[in-house]
Nucleic acid binder design. Structure first.
Lengths: 147, 147, 147, 147
DNA sequence: TTTT
DNA sequence: TTTT
């Protein structure tokens, strides 16, 4: 009795960070930017262009595809769902972060135009990803639930 | 060259809070819940039902419609866009909150079944809304931009 | 590199017709109505309300769920894809029909309010469904492809 | 109480045909192709790739933008609604055609890569468009309704 | 803080 | 052929 659906078409902000759970399941995370067009209101006010950053999370096969084929700057279409999770910051205070769990992905950048080469030269290290302070992924038991 | 689209169908968590900018523009906010079904993984793991709360923000005519017709418990379909904004908490630290700017709304609860009456008995006061500590709306100049 | 996605929220026009392929796979079909609101143009022209009828097609588990729980008059949310197929009419001329292949369905009519009882009294016969002249389903080999 | 929403991402099949109503309103039509990936069923059956053609209809500003910037082969994202209309064929029999009324469009082909030049060499004639027998547009009064 |  |  419920729908939670997100459709985004934008540009990849960084090469995906991919890590593997003990169960072998891949998880990829990377930011995607969407930009609203600037426009002018009826009263003449200029509303400038505005970029929104979305924290994408991909699991399993999609994460592996992202690891191989998605690069910074690529244009991407995704469908997914919104999910807000909490974590404790350095001071022990509860913080929230909203992420997009991706369940469908279409790559819109032709292979030839992707910055794939540079990514091979500076490979992501799946074994020990540095966790961004902005989007910490805690090592709690739920991490091993493959959803 | 960009798409940022959200589609939600869920239940209203609280009666809308509505305030009016100096320009007379109405802004309504209220939470919407979507609930994933519980399911069982191939390996037998039970993934329980999970409720996600979305912070909806409506402007102008939609806000006025929400003020009149939307009530706690109602089932609602909305389309909108994701927007994350920052604010400073009590300690001066930067915090982020993700909201859904609604641009289309369909009310799915028949008028007869809506909890409209109780809302009349406990009216929201648009003049001096208490701002929730969880989702502070700052009085900065941008508040008067009618977007 | 392609997306074909439909989202509909409307009312079921007739109880589902369900048939079973030789392979045991269930296929359900029924019409869904969506209605545009009437509105007035800037120049004063009245654009009246307009109802659009969509031919839904459901396979497998979704078809079985529809057979059990979906009834004429129910409010339904679906996601699916557009598909146009051709068939030969009585005169041998090629005709086209556009259908919506459903891949997600949310029933929005509470069980208590559904017209389910009458449907039990006038059951659909899956064994020998009459095929509507408007939307003929041909017995070609592709019918046994479970997509 | 109703939603009729289509999201397509695919390739333009022909340069847009644009005509202008007596009121000066522009209407553009062109086909868009979406292609399902081929896949293999659990039982080993190969389901081949399949292309779906959608009849897009754009009005007013969107039609003018399409006239200037959309070309055969371009990749396009659109949002719109499904609409089926009837017309009488040569024999006087009633036929149906399903079209997508576009209300949002994002062009995904970089200008430099678009086949824009050839379109200038073979311009569409807005004054007297030949009406395709497949998708006839009748000159009925409703044509002057700008919706 | 909602609903099934 | 549905619903408001």
């Amino acid at each position: 009795m419920s729908v939670n659906k997100v459709i985004l078409l934008g540009n990849v902000g960084k090469d995906p960070e991919v890590r593997y759970l003990d169960t072998g399941i891949a998880v990829a995370t990377f930011p995607l930017a969407t930009t609203d067009r600037a426009y002018t209101l009826a009263n003449g006010t200029q509303v400038p262009e505005r970029t929104e950053w979305h924290n994408l999370v991909l699991w399993r096969g999609l994460a592996e595809t992202a690891e191989k084929y998605v690069h910074k700057g690529d244009k991407l279409y995704i469908e997914g769902k919104i999910r807000t999770r909490s974590y404790d910051d350095q001071t022990g205070a509860k913080r929230y972060i909203t992420e997009i769990f991706v369940d469908n992905m279409e790559m819109l950048t032709p292979k030839s135009a992707s910055s794939g080469v540079s990514s091979v030269q500076q490979p992501v290290t799946p074994a020990q990803p540095q966790q961004s302070p902005v989007t910490p992924i805690q090592n709690n038991p739920a991490d091993d639930l493959p959803f």
